[in-house]
Design a protein around this nucleic acid. Structure first.
Lengths: 242, 242
DNA sequence: TAGCTTTTTGTCAGAGTGACAGAAAGAGGT
DNA sequence: ACCTCTTTCTGTCACTCTGACAAAAAGCTA
């Protein structure tokens, strides 16, 4: 199979970013309006080509994020969420894209960067339902990223990353409800997170918003892996069907 | 940042395969002895470059597997398990590798293919402990693949894929013990898998090996996602440490 | 038939969970 | 001051799941 003169075919490598946040109690994803062909004018995930042959993938991801959305993302922990390399997914040639996922507390409205005509948050359900069409195979990338976030919420303390440094249990519950897309019982949720050791720890004295009893404040604990995990009720209803 | 003449840097793309199986009650990984530079003579994961610019990633993975190990892997379901693209990980230049993971029932001893001087099974603990050194960053790739397999065993019916078409509950238990690396209580394991709906279904009449009471036979059920999941006891002991 | 091995059926106490009742702690109106 | 409304927090109850262990069942061998 290997002939003497054969050389491996070069490919172009891009990074694409799925940045999720919570705004107005809804899960939203960061999208940019493409300023260049192909798909010029369409919405797409922020991302782009490796800048030079020595650039690390994660470095490229951070760079693209600041270039295209001008977000201060020093603290964002990007996590690989998949590779998308189907031939023909990009009209410019053989382009393979590495997708990165990040979850963030309420981020500011981004401003457009150099390559993107505009950058803004969009509710993920608009993307998932197909109401909002994205360039390339980016809808699929968002789907996979959201599913990964849902799973991570079960087994890791990721949910606290959606909140600010100080939060109430109700705010934490709203994170779960928004990402999972289902309502949860506040009493049971309260009990569960309280006795999951190291998940959240009390911060300062109780005190909060306008109406109702003031809520206690908490901050994220040291624990990263939750045991026992938070379980999505949706799974248990699936369990019935054989 | 984007100057008129700038073109994205091309990279070379490889696929690497983490093929896991159970032999002699131990988790083993398929390795080849490299027949070409770099790392000629060292052990490495089967894999290689994309053959041509239009080749699909998954196609390349299957092709490399049959070329290098000559395994009949039509039925193997390969699953993406990560991307490894650190600059400098390959002396030949900027090489980015997409890792695929597969889990298989007792596979035959492989025969060497064209690019590999030899192909054989090696216990994963030899690799993880560092007793066995691998080329490139392949040890890390194996680590990640094994960890993914461990997690998949908890939430999916993957374990049945390690067994033949017909198996006993004890054989299934041995899969869990080998992959997780811990012993399990046979009685509790029996109860658990029996009442996890759709995990395993009775197959034919009971009958089996030399000594002891004959075991009932089962085959894999339709269910892919296990609910409730099988939980690793190791996690619960971690839970103590805050 | 006795002894050995392995599979299968039980038992029991404790932890975790869903469903829900109701007390506690504020704000605002009369 | 008192009542109402809202939201947070504390319990309760029945049920399921789990870990630890006992013991019966079903073969084989001596």
């Amino acid at each position: 199979m290997t002939d003497d003169r054969w050389v491996p075919p070069p490919v172009l490598l891009t990074v694409d970013l799925v940045i999720l946040t919570l705004r107005e109690s809804r899960l939203q994803v960061l999208l940019v309006e493409r300023g260049v062909e192909p798909y010029k004018g369409d919405l797409a995930l922020p991302g782009g080509f490796l800048q030079h042959a020595e650039e690390d993938l994660i470095t490229a991801a951070h760079r693209e994020l600041s270039e295209e959305a001008d977000l201060d993302v020093e603290t964002l922990r990007l996590e690989q969420s998949g590779v998308y390399g189907a031939p023909g997914r990009d009209p410019r040639g053989r382009v393979v894209s590495v997708a990165y996922l990040a979850i963030a507390p309420r981020l500011p409205e981004p401003t457009a960067g150099t390559d993107a005509a505009d950058a803004r948050w969009q509710p993920v359900d608009h993307v998932l339902s197909g109401d909002l069409e994205l360039a390339f195979d980016h809808r699929r990338i968002v789907e996979d990223g959201v599913e990964r976030a849902r799973v991570k919420l079960e087994h890791s303390a990721l949910a606290t990353a959606f909140c600010g440094p100080i939060f109430t249990i109700t705010e934490l519950q709203e994170v779960y409800e928004a990402v999972w897309g289902i309502p949860l019982d506040p009493r049971n949720f309260y009990r569960k997170v309280q006795k999951t050791d190291g998940f959240i720890i009390p911060a300062g004295s109780a005190r909060k918003s306008a109406t109702g009893r003031p809520a206690r404040l908490f901050k994220a604990g040291r624990r990263e892996v939750l045991y026992p995990p938070m379980v999505r009720p949706s799974e248990s209803s699936n369990a019935k069907e054989q």
